[in-house]
Design a binder for these strands. Structure first.
Lengths: 342, 342
DNA sequence: GAATCATGAGAAAGCGTTTTCTCAGAGCGT
DNA sequence: ACGCTCTGAGAAAACGCTTTCTCATGATTC
């Protein structure tokens, strides 16, 4: 065996001995599972209190087959969106006595499946944010992870709830907002190539194109963070577009700062929109027009969906596929274009 | 027992049966602990692979007495500082095969000790961020949590490593920076009453006062987030101070936006400084002068200190007390005052 | 060729709980 | 006063793994 009895943390046996009962009885009074003589119960409780006994969660987990913990897999903890989801999830889960375990894949897509499996084995369920994972891999992985809640992804398996944001609609509304202001030359500064939510934006913009054939819409490659937005500054200026749809708020902020450095005024010369409405979006200069995603709700709803699955353990009923529609948040980074477009 | 053998997840016994060996042997080949006949080992590995066997971490934890998990207690996951620490910690720990479990106390100081104890029982160690916990409570709690790493707090117990930032020095440097620019009327927009780091700032400012008796320095009550900074706007304007030391970047940003709404120009009318240098500080308008804390390092160093303790389990050696000196980050929110001070 | 030794596999104990099983004793009715 | 039910506590099994203990087998040496 591992450790010969070095002065170990006090366990149920110590309480049992002190109270002069069996450890089964101690367990019973601690969990209130069966009727115990009030006198004995009091004696046990006194002993437990005196010894400051706290049941070992690992032992409990093994016996109970549950850990009261859920895992969350995120691609990048530096992203405010995932931070917010994590926070919402953590707070909601804590309310029900659950804790959350983090697995940050650091954008390494190939690790995501492994991390998720690992997390699932340690926890009672997994919330998976894997925007870049291939569909095939996701389909294969999902059943092995149940209970599972997907964020911004869906599976064909109907017993997996998913929470997603309608990025396609959001980006269309933003584009229409720009058109409504008088812009005729738009550019979309796209996100990571294999991102599912980027694909949704592209699909939305395709629809937009059909409805507005008269509008020029360029597609520029970008990334998902500050720096990539900043790096795209010159390409944006060169594009000649007056209305820029950035992949998200982070990219928009990087772009904003790049444009400022180049002496390009926002919104006088160029209008910029973001996506997500991260907490800082309203504090940029100028405050960022964006599509607001109810990000705190996402986290807490993720927990609710998880809890539903944990409670009805076994019976695999079909689960809700929640979709959130972003809400336009018109601020000061968009305005009518000053120059006449071509 | 809990569950009569409903179609359970496959375990070590299944592999043993399939390979025609005892489960002890399976365990041996999985962990490479003892010499096993190469032929048998191959058979076991084949069986394990075919069954996709993955050892149950809870069982392992119970047998091994370790969970490969550490907990982190934070007062507020919405605060970028704690987000960054969490991230640094998580990434560093993952490198060594450890996961991190979150406990967000939601600023409820009275819960912190309980959460920390809870976390400790589930994990191999705890990183504690509890800026508002009373000193006495901390002293009593610390020994029960070992291995423990304290952030921005210290204990008399020398076997508890702590990582802290020299807020006192940072705030003095910021004040001196303002004085150097010509400001004579300063105001400190303080943080939460019982915050340890706020006390450090106050001590630092006391020193500053002694060195600069000619400078007026007002103390204003505030909080630690956007909103509290925003709410303090009118009090700040009323104070007549031209140089404002905000508790942190969040407060400074709230103040910046409030001043903007009131038509007060920064830095022409009032100079504002923050603290922390959160990622967004350089994107405010104007970019925020602040004292930069090497926040990513804090997280990874926290893990290193934790790992050291976990490795030398038992022998309670005295541990390092690391202190970081903030680095001045002079940006555009501070400048020489336009008006002649009294 | 027998005694010694090394190798390696199975049996079983242990980690700390919960829960089923079992049974002693009390209470009740007739 | 006997037998019945019922209450409640202890014994023991189970959760899934690791590791010590034990012992059989085959190799080595004099």
């Amino acid at each position: 065996m591992a450790r010969r009895n070095t002065n170990r943390r006090i366990g149920i046996a110590d309480v049992a001995e002190k109270a002069g009962v069996s450890h089964a009885t101690v367990s019973r009074v601690m969990n209130g599972n069966a009727a115990v003589d009030p006198g004995i119960a009091a004696r046990v409780r006194a002993a437990a209190a005196e010894l400051k006994y706290q049941p070992n969660p690992v032992g409990r987990s093994l016996a109970l087959g549950k850990t009261d913990t859920i895992g969350i897999v995120v691609p990048d903890l530096a992203n405010p969106t995932f931070q917010a989801i994590l926070r919402g999830l953590s707070i909601a889960a804590a309310q029900d006595g659950y804790r959350v375990l983090i697995a940050d894949s650091s954008e390494v897509t190939s690790e995501e499946a492994i991390l998720a499996g690992e997390a699932r084995r340690r926890c009672d369920g997994v919330v998976l944010c894997a925007p870049r994972m291939g569909d095939a891999e996701l389909e294969e992985l999902a059943p092995t992870l149940h209970p599972l809640v997907l964020i911004n992804r869906t599976t064909v398996a109907t017993n997996t709830p998913s929470l997603s944001v309608d990025y396609g609609q959001g980006i269309q509304e933003l584009a229409q907002h720009l058109v409504g202001l008088g812009h005729r030359r738009l550019a979309f500064l796209s996100g990571p190539e294999h991102s599912a939510s980027n694909r949704q934006r592209l699909v939305g913009l395709e629809t937009f194109r059909k409805e507005h054939p008269e509008i020029e819409l360029q597609m520029l490659h970008g990334g998902s963070n500050f720096d990539s937005g900043h790096e795209s500054t010159e390409a944006i200026i060169a594009s000649g577009a007056t209305g820029i749809l950035a992949f998200n708020d982070l990219v928009a902020m990087g772009l904003l700062s790049g444009l400022h450095e180049h002496g390009v005024r926002v919104p006088e010369d160029i209008s910029v929109t973001g996506f997500d409405d991260i907490p800082f979006a309203k504090y940029t200069t100028p405050p960022l027009t964006t599509a607001a995603v109810p990000i705190n709700e996402l986290g807490s709803l993720a927990w609710r969906r998880m809890r539903e699955q944990i409670q009805q353990a076994g019976e695999s009923t079909t689960q809700a596929q929640d979709e959130f529609s972003p809400r336009m948040e018109i601020r000061k980074s968009t305005a009518a274009p000053a120059l006449k477009p071509a």
